[in-house]
């Protein structure tokens, strides 16, 4: 399993559009991904509405856990996505 954190730079945070695109990306991998915002229970990386429901804003740090056969590739893709969009 790979875990890493990312602090949101984007001023709007994880709104509908980036959440939708992140879920689409994660669904493309076999690995199970969970996303955790401090103080809230972790949510599955494929759960669009729960992910939106976390209300992740600019400055929030989220923790990703990636577990599965393609975890290396999945983690790298997520980091790229976060850096490019959030």
């Amino acid at each position: 399993m790979k875990t890493f954190t990312y602090t949101i730079q984007d001023e709007i945070g994880i709104h509908a559009r980036p959440a939708g695109n992140l879920v689409k990306l994660i669904k493309g991998f076999e690995s199970a991904v969970t996303i955790e915002k401090e103080g809230k229970p972790p949510v599955s990386g494929t759960a669009l509405m729960k992910l939106m429901g976390l209300g992740v804003k600019c400055g929030d740090t989220v923790k990703f856990s990636v577990d599965g056969a393609d975890e290396e590739a999945a983690a790298a893709a997520i980091v790229d996505f976060m850096q490019a969009n959030l």
């Binding site: 509908a16 559009r17 939708g20 879920v23 494929t46 669009l48 509405m49």
Partner: peptide
């Protein structure tokens, strides 16, 4: 775009 997001919400696993 809102309708694209509606489609994704309809396919949401938790929902």
């Amino acid at each position: 775009e809102i309708f694209g997001i509606h489609m994704m919400m309809l396919e949401d696993d938790d929902y």
